[in-house]
Nucleic acid binder design. Structure first.
Lengths: 262, 262
DNA sequence: CGTTTCGTTGAGTTAAATCAAAACTGGTGG
DNA sequence: CCACCAGTTTTGATTTAACTCAACGAAACG
């Protein structure tokens, strides 16, 4: 990317975070109750969490936190998609994580993140003020246990992504991204009607490029190529249909045979 | 890399792990006592750990575990360097972690790793049988606490590495690798005589390439270039001298100004 | 509707990969 | 001690996948 173009982006003024008063949700009826950091909590622990939690919403494109900023809370993503990214001094940008519902934001024990966290679509967080949350972690084991498990899963995901970034071709990178999202959508949503999966990724081509370590032009070209070959279909803008997930997985370069052969 | 060359490597027969009976070390006198997973342990917890631990050594090039294999233990690296890597079906390889003394191997709750772990030089591990270790984690908080902290550090390191893999040039990648090693050496070893740091990386050019997502030829060329420009000096094979760490850091593309400006 | 942001496509360039060969290293045994 | 060997590293010539630059559609938006 040319320097002037990068710098132009680097100085883009961030939109000011808006605090939206959301409807309070009971933990018992929470959509991420069994997957988030609170998954293992007993009823009494949940009560304590409920006392210190509050909801907060961000609209598309808003910053949740900037690298180096103090963040007075930690949070779970309840709804929406957010990105974790790092930006170099000259504006080169790399996404290092994708936050989907139930994912955790923030690090207990550190008050500042080294990353930018940005809402992609509209995002709702379930926030806990840092201090009370840390106290809770120190006194009850279940939150810390779950957080360790989630962190190790994220570490595995990060390492899988390192293989994608370091060794895969542009085409394989695209296929890998779509496969990973499709897998996660399948876990949560409908059991995927006979292998036909619809991915509602709100990411722009540029955001995908930042995730994949590519340029947006290369992303666009590879998506077009996959479309022309019938591996994927483009629905409306930013909605991709995968007619046959195995066909897509065959393009990732991975070993495949993920055990789901009928 | 051409396919035939990759396959030739993929079928290389692994050396058979050798079990060496090491001298028992008292935890109190252990070189990694205050940095490893046991760092926060109270004397009584240490006693319990001491009961279930044993040492095991591997020689250069030996596999500690293969992807998919069962691993009956978890362990701390006491001495030496090991690599964590992933290999694709066609032989493309990516290192996803570098294990230095005090780093932890294995995941509580999972008996098989998805990674290859290989000794680079001679390596000594402090091993704990899985089951007793998991019991210990469940009953005493300090091990789990420390492990969470270490995992989050590793996650940060993995994410930093994603930026390197995704967005940096070959030259910046080399500089980043050397800087990261130098930083860690400096933390542990001698306070680095007036900024002059000697890095005793036992990695081959190929291993560096696998870490950086490059070919070994590109690694060699970039190291030669840095040498010719006086940014680094080559001592004996696989030993690199950094006369001025800031000069090297300036080549990483990072923001720099790490607060150590006199 | 203009306007702006986002996405596609084309033409030319370049950093790193590939292919190839020579030079160096360290260990082994005659 | 030296010749040899296998593994490693360096260097050179060429190719290529992805980047850059540029222009043009297509949605989204007030």
């Amino acid at each position: 990317m040319p320097l002037d173009r990068r710098l132009a982006k680097a100085v883009t003024v961030p939109s000011i975070p808006k605090l939206t008063k959301d409807v309070e949700i009971e933990c018992a009826g929470c959509p991420i109750r069994h997957r988030a950091v609170c998954a293992k909590c007993a009823p009494d622990e949940l009560t304590r969490l409920e006392e210190i939690k509050y909801y907060r919403s961000y609209e598309a494109g808003q910053a949740i936190t900037w690298a180096g900023d103090e963040m007075g809370f930690v949070a779970s993503v309840v709804r929406g998609v957010a990105t974790i990214s790092q930006t170099m001094a000259d504006g080169r940008k790399q996404m290092v994580g994708l936050l989907l519902p139930s994912d955790f934001i923030g690090r207990p024990g550190r008050s500042s993140t080294p990353y930018d966290v940005t809402a992609v679509g509209e995002v709702t967080l379930c926030c806990f003020r840092r201090k009370p949350f840390e106290q809770l972690m120190a006194t009850t084991p279940h939150v810390a246990e779950r957080l360790l498990d989630m962190s190790l899963d994220e570490l595995d995901a990060a390492r899988e992504w390192m293989l994608v970034l370091g060794r895969k071709t542009a085409r394989e990178k695209i296929a890998s991204l779509l496969t990973i999202i499709a897998r996660r959508e399948a876990t949560v949503g409908v059991p995927a009607m006979k292998g036909r999966i619809t991915i509602d990724l709100q990411l722009t081509r540029e955001a995908m490029a930042d995730y994949l370590g590519l340029t947006l032009e290369t992303v666009s070209r590879q998506i077009s190529a996959l479309k022309n070959e019938g591996v994927i279909e483009l629905g409306t803008q930013r909605r991709i249909v995968v007619p046959d997930i195995r066909r897509l997985m065959a393009e990732t370069g991975d070993d495949m045979d993920g055990g789901l052969i009928a």
